[in-house]
Design a protein around this nucleic acid. Structure first.
Lengths: 236, 236, 236, 236
DNA sequence: GATGAATGAGTGTTCATTCAT
DNA sequence: AATGAATGAACACTCATTCAT
C-alpha cells in the first residue's frame, strides 16, 4: 500500500507501481516472461507519453522505443494506436479506480472525517498518479474518441459519484449534514477533483512562477468551505 | 462591449487587434473592407472549428473554406497553423473576458447577491459562449502551446481571481462572510467555473443519455453550498 | 486512325495516343492545362507500370514519378491506389473497346473476310496496345479485385462476344457458314484473343529464345482453321 | 503416376523431389517421417493458398498454419517466400504434367478420336485439378518470376505441344487431316487449353451470374470446329 | 491580394525474415 | 528440429505549406 504522509506537490510524478511484474515466481524462459510483461510495459510507456505529450503528438514508434521494443512489436499486442489508448484507459483508470473506497464501507467516525479521509485517499491513489493525467487526456481527446469519454463517464465518474453520494447520504441520515440535494452536492466535490487533475496537467506546468498550487491543500480547504460555509451567521 | 482598461498584463502579445468586433468605422471600398476583415473572419472560423473538432483534427483547409477563402489565403495572414491558433486564443480570450465584471465596481446590495449575480453574468457572457470552448481548448492544447496556457493564466484567470477575491473580501469587510482564506475560497469558485466549461465540452457531448447536467443550476447550487455549508450546526 | 501494314511482333509496345492532350486549343494558363492533363498522365503512367510490373509490385510513388509529379499529387486525383487501378481500366479498356467494330455495321463483302478484317482491326487497336496488357492484368489481379474482373466481363468481354456473334450469325444467315452453335463458336475465337494477350505478356517476354510467336499470324491461321477445318474430307 | 523419361529439358531445377506424392515407402519413426514430409506438406499448403488467393495476397504465416507448423519452420525448409513459390511450381507442374499422354503412344483408333480422348484426359487429369490453377498462377506471376515462366514453357508447354504435334502429324500421315501447318494448328488447341484454365480461375469466380461456362464442353466444341470448320462448302 | 495545384516530410501499419529459447 | 517473439524495411496515404499564375 502506498502511503504518503506529506502532500505531494510536484508535477511530473510518474509513480506507477508496475502492476505487471510480480516477484518472479517460478523461473520461466526469458522470452516467455517478456511476452507476458510486454503489454504492461507498452501500456506504461504509452501512459507516460500520452500524458506528457498528448495522444496524437505521440508517435507509436516512441511508445515502442520507451518500452524498449521496436515499432512492430507494439502492433503485435495492440491492433492500432487507438486500441492502445483504449487499453491504457481500461487498465490504468478503471483498475485503479476500483481500488478506491473499499474501506469506507464500515467507517465508524463522523462523516466529516470520512469525507476528508476519502478525498485524501483518492488523491494519493488516483489523483496524484498518472491516472490523474489520464483523466485530463480523456477530456482533451474526447472529440476524437467519444466512446472513450463515455466509457470514462460510466466506469470511472459514475462509481465515484455513487460513492460520494453514499457518504453524503450517511451524513444526512446521521443528522450531521443538512438535508441538501445530494447529487448536486456530489458534483461540487467532483468538480474540485476534476479541476485539480485538469489544472495540474495543463496550467500548472506552464506557469512555474505561480507554482504555489497545492492540490491536496486545495481539496481540504474546499471540503472545509463546503462543510462550514462562507457566511458568518449561516441562514436558518 | 470591448473596454480595455485594467488587467492586461500580457507578455509577447503579437496580434491584439480584435479585427472582428470593432464596429467598422468609416465606410471603405468593398475590396478594402474584405482585406481588413479577412484575419478576423479566419480567426472566427478557426475558433469555431477548433472548438468543434479540436486543433489537430481541424485541417487548415477547412478553416479557409469556412471563412470563404482558399487555402493559400490563410497562410497569407498567418505564418502557420500554430500561429493561427495562438492568434485565435489571444484575440478571443481577451475580448470575451474583458466583457465581464465591470459593473460590479459600484454594486450596492449584499455580497451574497453580488456573487450570484456575478457568476450568472459570467455564465451568460463567457461560460455559455464560444469562449467556454476556448478555455477547454487552451487546457487541452497546453502541452503543445505552453505560452498560451501561461498567457491564459496571466490574462484571464488571474483577473478573474482578482475580481472574485475583491468580492469575497468585500463580504468579509462588511461582516457578511467569515474571515476565511480568500485565495483558497476563490479557487473553490474558479474550480467550479473551469469544471463547468471542461465538462460541457468533453463529457457531456459524449453521454447523451446523461444530458441532465445544467451548468447554471450547478453553479448556483455550488455557491449556495459554499455560502451555507453542509453541516447542520455549523462550527464556531 | 492507326494503320500498320506489317504485323507488329515486338513486345513492350506502348503506343498509347495520349487521349488527353489535344492540339492545344485556346491558350490556357500553364497550371490550368496541367490540372486537366494530370489525370491522363497519371493513368498513362500507371497503365505502363502496372503492365510492366504488376499492380502490387508497382509503388504509387513510381507512378507519380513516371508522370513527372510527386507522390502527393497522385492522391490529389485518385482516392487510392485501387481507385487509380479502376480508373485505368475504365479509361483505357472500355474507351478503346468502344472504338472497335463500328464500321462492320454495313460491311458488304463475304463474312469470312469480315471476320478476318475484324480480328485484324482488334489486334491493331486493342490487342497490340497496352490495353492488351491490361487484360492480362485484370485476369491476374482478379482475386484481389473481383469487381474489376466482373466489370471487365460485362463491359468488355460481353460486347466483344456480341459483336462476334452477329458476325457469325450473318455468315449463317447468308448461307456462308454451317448452322453451328454460335455462342460456342464465338468462344473459340475469344479464347484465341484472350490467349494471345495473356501469352504475349507472360510467357513470351520470358522466353526470348522462342520469340517466334506472331500473334496476328496466329490469329489468322486460327480463323483459317476454324473456317476450313482440319479434316481432309469434312463431315456431312 | 510419376514417370520421368523424356521432356525434362529444364534449367536450374533446384528441388525436384516430389516429396508429396510418392507412396511413403518403408515405415520410419514417426518423428523422422514428419521431418521428411514437412517440405511436401508446406508445398501442398502453399499451392492451395497461392491458387486461392494469389502469391502476394498469401501471408507466409498462413501457409505455415495450413501445413500445421509455425512460421519459423517454413523458413527452415525454404530460404524465402519466393523460394517457396519456385519450389511449389517446380514440384507440382512437373508432377502433374507428366501424368498426361503416356497411353497415346500406341493408340489405335482414328486420330479425331485420339484428339478428343487426349483433351478429355488432359482436362480430367490436369486442367480440372489444382494444376490448372498453377498455370494461371505462373502466367500471373511471370513478371516477378520470369525463370519460372521460362521453365513452364520449356517443361510443360513444349512437351504438350510436341505431343499434340505428334497427334496432328499422325492424322496427316494417315490421310485423315489436310496437310496443314502443324505447329500453328497445335497452337489453336493450346490456346483453348490455356484460355480454359485462365478463365476458370479469374473471370468465372467473379461473375456468378454468368456461370454457364462449361470448360470440357467448350474444349470439345472447339475441337469439333477445328476439325470440321465453319464453312458450309469447305474450301477446295 | 488571391488562388489552388503541387509538394514531401511524416506516420500508422504490415509482413517476410531472424534468432533466442 | 521447432517455436513464436521480435524486428525493421517498406509502403499507402495525409496535410501543412509553398509558389507559379
Amino acid at each position: 500500500m502506498v502511503r504518503r504522509t506529506a502532500y505531494i506537490t510536484n508535477q511530473s510524478v510518474i509513480n506507477m507501481s508496475d502492476a505487471t511484474l510480480s516477484p518472479e515466481p517460478p523461473p520461466v524462459a526469458r522470452r516467455e516472461r517478456r511476452k507476458e510483461a510486454r503489454p504492461g510495459e507498452l501500456i506504461q510507456a504509452a501512459l507516460e507519453l500520452f500524458v506528457e505529450k498528448g495522444f496524437s503528438a505521440t508517435r507509436s514508434e516512441e511508445v515502442a522505443a520507451r518500452a524498449g521494443v521496436s515499432k512492430g512489436t507494439l502492433f503485435l499486442y495492440f491492433q492500432s494506436k487507438e486500441d492502445l489508448f483504449r487499453d491504457v484507459i481500461r487498465t490504468r483508470l478503471v483498475d485503479h479506480f476500483l481500488a478506491w473506497g473499499q474501506e469506507f464501507e464500515d467507517f465508524q467516525g463522523p462523516t466529516e472525517e470520512m469525507l476528508r479521509s476519502g478525498l485524501q485517499a483518492w488523491w494519493e491513489r488516483i489523483g496524484n498518479t498518472p491516472a490523474g493525467g489520464l483523466t485530463k487526456l480523456v477530456l482533451s481527446e474526447s472529440h476524437n474518441f467519444p466512446e472513450i469519454a463515455a466509457y470514462y463517464q460510466v466506469s470511472v465518474v459514475q462509481p465515484g459519484r455513487d460513492l460520494l453520494g453514499r457518504i453524503l447520504q450517511r451524513g444526512i441520515d446521521r443528522g450531521e449534514f443538512r438535508p441538501i440535494d445530494v447529487p448536486q452536492a456530489v458534483m461540487s466535490i467532483v468538480s474540485a477533483m476534476v479541476f485539480v487533475m485538469t489544472w495540474r496537467h495543463s496550467i500548472v506546468p506552464c506557469t512555474p512562477q505561480d507554482a504555489s498550487f497545492d492540490p491536496l491543500a486545495f481539496l481540504m480547504t474546499h471540503v472545509d468551505l463546503l462543510l462550514h460555509g462562507l457566511l458568518s451567521s449561516p441562514s436558518a
